[in-house]
């Protein structure tokens, strides 16, 4: 974590988090202002304004090509935005690489999960950040921390943390990828279609995991095509349509049919457009 890009401000002094139910944080954890991104003549994102409050689950929905993936890649430090600013805890940041973003506390769990099937759970949890003592891997320390993190996240379906990751189910793999991010003090976990390839039980497990994250004060930004999942876990919804963020706000203002309308046409009579700064 020491090789943080010099352009990113010091994040050690984080403002105290307020996750106590009704109380609302004064500054959003992440605030995007006027984020645009073009690939040559193609405008993938057009002046996106979005607040991600601490400790809440924000669902990012939209049709294929609406710009969801581009937006999360801009947040995760993979694409630099063409214009616009990104505020993290009220301070302007410019993560240029995924490592910069990770140093801030932004972790992204992609669909392919980036796990090594041939290495056990403990090894994957610590990949690139292993504990050592006297030059050798400190397996005991790493195993204890892994067990504790999985317990904190209420991941109980894994039999042994010494199993190879290749032997795990899709939902379990998702849980390991998320737990890895949490163990490195992620404040915002971005998940790209976490339930896309999962069965009913495993989907329920992943949704529970997302709820556990937010109950621990960790923000979640989740891309999903499945509106059942969205309405099951999200506190807030942000809808994208052809590169524009056409609507966002607390989930209570939406219902599945108005959301579908927004996704397919970019507007809905029943939801006022662009209710920025209106926290429930």
């Amino acid at each position: 974590m020491s090789e943080t890009n010099s352009s990113t401000p010091d994040t050690t002094a984080r403002p105290p988090m307020d996750n106590s139910g009704g109380g609302q944080p004064s500054v959003p954890l992440l605030a995007l202002r006027g984020i645009s991104k073009n690939f040559g003549p193609v405008q993938a994102l057009q002046r996106v304004d979005l607040d991600i409050p601490a400790g809440q689950v924000t669902a990012l929905v939209g049709d294929n090509g609406a710009g969801k993936s581009t937006l999360i890649k801009a947040i995760a430090g993979i694409y630099a935005p063409s214009s616009g600013t990104m505020m993290w805890n009220g301070q302007e940041v410019h993560p240029h690489t995924p490592r910069d973003a990770a140093a801030l506390g932004i972790a992204t769990v992609y669909q392919d999960l980036a796990l090594c099937d041939n290495i056990d759970i403990v090894g994957n949890m610590f990949l690139g950040f292993e504990d050592t003592s006297a030059g050798a891997l400190d397996e005991i320390s790493m195993e204890l921390k892994t067990v504790q993190t999985l317990k904190d996240l209420q991941v109980s379906t894994v039999k042994s943390v010494r199993q190879l990751v290749g032997s795990l189910s899709g939902g379990q793999r998702q849980a390991i990828a998320v737990a890895r991010a949490v163990m490195r003090d992620a404040r915002l976990v971005i998940m790209d279609e976490p339930t896309a390839a999962l069965g009913v039980t495993q989907t329920a497990n992943v949704l529970n995991l997302i709820k556990t994250l937010s109950s621990r004060g960790i923000s979640v930004l989740v891309i999903s095509h499945n509106l059942n999942d969205v309405f099951a876990v999200a506190d807030r919804i942000a809808v994208m349509y052809l590169g524009n963020l056409v609507s966002n706000g607390p989930i209570s203002k939406y219902d599945p049919s108005s959301t579908v309308e927004l996704i397919t046409t970019g507007a809905s009579e029943r939801v006022e457009p662009h209710p920025l700064h209106s926290f429930a």
Partner: peptide, 24 residues
């Protein structure tokens, strides 16, 4: 079996992209 070096060898052989993203 017991060092970071070896762990990274296995990681690269198992999933080079995952190893790269882990900063190896």
């Amino acid at each position: 079996g017991r060092t970071k070096f070896g762990r990274y060898m296995y990681a690269i052989g198992g999933n080079a992209e995952a190893a790269r993203r882990a900063g190896i």
